[in-house]
Design a protein around this nucleic acid. Structure first.
Lengths: 130, 130, 130, 130
DNA sequence: GTGGTCTAGACCACC
DNA sequence: GTGGTCTAGACCACG
């Protein structure tokens, strides 16, 4: 799997990595049981400190998305974390609000936003898999 | 206008305030010329340090959303700032990606996401104005 | 609150700290809203690296026991984490099994174990509070 | 005797095996002279590397719980190791502290904890022997 | 090889 | 002052 990080992005590097992994899981490009690159390898690829990648992995593990096994590697969990359904819904709502705010500021109307959403969906789910 | 801040939210408090003001402007609940509460009043209302509100106002002023007028108060600008169209588009895209990620993880399909989006739009634009 | 760490204990230092904090919360010596020492101060007290204390705090935060607030400090959460009741029960069971195993190996009988338990309970809850 | 290992448990696999064997000895389900499965058989049964089982057996042998006899197999020792009484007591104390912490966090009071302890004791000592 | 822990610094953002 | 992030090493434990 390919990662891209941008140290000047505002969002901390470890969160950029977390985001890309959760997006890949959500879109089905990463499936339960898939092995991730070791945090050392990935840190070399991205030219950042190993601990930075490790922190991303650690947080994802605490959230239940992935599982590290000493001496073996790090893997995507088969069962995605059971989050309170209400919390989930709340997060979706908030993401919807943010999208709408950005869209309003860009002068877009609802039909255009829906078009962008569909197009983005196609991109996310059709990206080639490793 | 009502504000809600949550010190444990991860997002800095001053950014929570900025977000709520820009959301309100984007949704049309705040219009050019509307007066904002003074940063002292707002800080008392939210039980936070006055400097925190001031920082939010300062940043919004630097971005061109609002304007402070010595001795009179702080007002929403009539002409909202022109942001680079490409940047705007990029932010919309990113918000769309985040919404889709949250939606996938909640097990929602595109049609359901669109429903939520429409409903949220109605909520955002119909909220009563202060 | 006083902490003691032993680098040669086998248990990682950051887990020793986590254990002492959760014990204190469980026993009521730390209550919701109480402020913890800054990770820098505590690291000086214990003569260890600040990151080590920070890791303990980070994990406790991920578990929902404490909450860090930038610029203000770190505080015990008012509402303890809602863990699945079944998981809770399972953890208690496992702790009970471990205690019994240790007790068997020490040649103790159930009545003696219960005595130790009661005595330990008194120690945990009666330790003077800071 | 049945073993269960969980690679994602945090506790290293070889320690999980060690724990189950010492628990069985402590509870009387394994007695001096009983033969253990060969490390090869056990590794096949648990679908783990033979070296992992071997390490568990090696450590138990070093501690004096079991004894490997070239060409014959591995057996539980008749006389269990004499561990420093103070260390033993210390371990019992620590296990008691952990149990109480988990119990407090689960909202249990001492009488309930004692009930669970008694029930667990019956389960541990009454498990059928292979 | 893998992950797990720890150090001793640094700089930034926030209140 | 507080917490948040990052670096560039080190050594250990595990499979």
């Amino acid at each position: 799997m390919q990662f891209i990080v941008n140290p000047a992005d505002g969002l901390p590097i470890y969160r950029q990595i977390m985001r890309q992994i959760t997006e890949a899981i959500a879109a089905g490009r990463l499936k339960g049981g898939d092995q991730l690159a070791s945090h050392r390898d990935l840190s070399e690829q991205l030219v950042i400190a190993p601990l930075t990648v490790k922190k991303a992995y650690d947080e994802l593990e605490a959230l239940g998305y992935i599982s590290s096994q000493r001496g073996r590697g790090t893997f995507v969990c088969a069962r995605q974390p059971r989050v309170n359904a209400v919390d989930r819904r709340e997060q979706v709502q908030q993401a919807a609000r943010q999208l709408l705010t950005q869209a309003y500021l860009a002068g877009l109307k609802i039909p255009e936003v829906i078009e962008i959403l569909k197009k983005t969906d196609r991109e996310l789910t059709q990206e080639e898999r490793k």
